[in-house]
Write a protein that binds this DNA or RNA. Sequence first.
DNA 1: GTCTATACCCTGATAGAC
DNA 2: GTCTATCAGGGTATAGAC
Lengths: 216, 216
Amino acid sequence: MTKAPISQSQTLCDSCLPAVTQKQEQILQGAMRVFLKAGYAGTSMDRVSAEAGVSKQTIYSHFQDKKGLFKALMEWVTIASFSRFFDVEQLQGEPAVLLRQVAETYFTKVADHPDYIALLRLVVAESEHFPELAKLYTQTVIQRGHQLLSQYFVCHPELGIADPEATTHIFFGSLVSHVMVQEMLNGNETMPLARDRLLDNLVNLVLAQTKNVRLH
Amino acid sequence: MTKAPISQSQTLCDSCLPAVTQKQEQILQGAMRVFLKAGYAGTSMDRVSAEAGVSKQTIYSHFQDKKGLFKALMEWVTIASFSRFFDVEQLQGEPAVLLRQVAETYFTKVADHPDYIALLRLVVAESEHFPELAKLYTQTVIQRGHQLLSQYFVCHPELGIADPEATTHIFFGSLVSHVMVQEMLNGNETMPLARDRLLDNLVNLVLAQTKNVRLH
DNA sequence: GTCTATACCCTGATAGAC
DNA sequence: GTCTATCAGGGTATAGAC
């Protein structure tokens, strides 16, 4: 971990790759608050203009229309906020500890941010009407995490991971669906499962392959 | 498997638990087509009335308002369509074969139905505005499947499953997130992973605990 | 119970003053 | 570039005839 400031005071993004003017960022910040809460169809341009503190026409002068604003927003949020999450994590140390660290990074740095839940919800919700945004999300967020863990498995054959890619899907898939069921669908009320308990079993399962290898 | 007819010609439901009149079912069928495709905010009552072939007022006489219609629809679809999926499946036979059967039941009977994808998408999308529907979904659909597999693990201690509940979360979580990423978010284009490959590894991982037990 | 017609509000998008 | 004012269209919900 570098000594980068932990404060995420500016809601979600601070270092934004897409070049945006100060006014555009002001609009996008307001648009984010509305779109993430109300969804695409549930968002009105009036509401966005009020939330951003600008007039409607100002929005239309910077972005073609509602669709254009939405696409620009999603690119902005997705690219800017997740480009650093699993960036240059030091992938070394005891495998069991390392896997827990990766998982806990996902939990604390991603899943615990309400904006992430809202973003995931929105991407899923609009995945039919805006498939290109779903694709952007998978490439920018999901694939990034997968490649990192998958490469780690490949570079450490002593772990005996039979299929790094598939194992990665199982690992992150369990984490994502856990967050989805527990946090988004309120499963914590009727079928709760503590994160630690999931992690204990998940790490054990993945590293069980190691033991079998050693017994050969 | 009983000799129940496989034909699901009536879109999603045929035997419906909630008592509905013929007219109400006509309305719900139309509402389903619109809501599942356009989402809640994207659905207009005009569109529903046109799709159902009734007047708008007829809808308002049977259901309080748009919200009431939506809730009634979701209960109808959720309860009616999933009450039989994992019903009295014969949970016996070779564990590796059995686990694959459960997974393939999920894939072919659930995930391959476009309506299921749309329903899951809609539940996720509206999980903030309609948390009670998300809860209904988890209780009716997710919990049902979980209890079945979890009980199987409990009743077969020779498998050496350390934590049946957590293992079940990992098992179904991997399946659900796979469907979500591959089918809904178009991950099959940029990060494809065949179902068989996922299943091979998933079953191996879960049953690896069995081998370790035998070695004791 | 069901349909036609309509009231009333808010939406996305535009035109013109500054 | 930015704002105020406005348009045309479609939204939810209701009223009254059959």
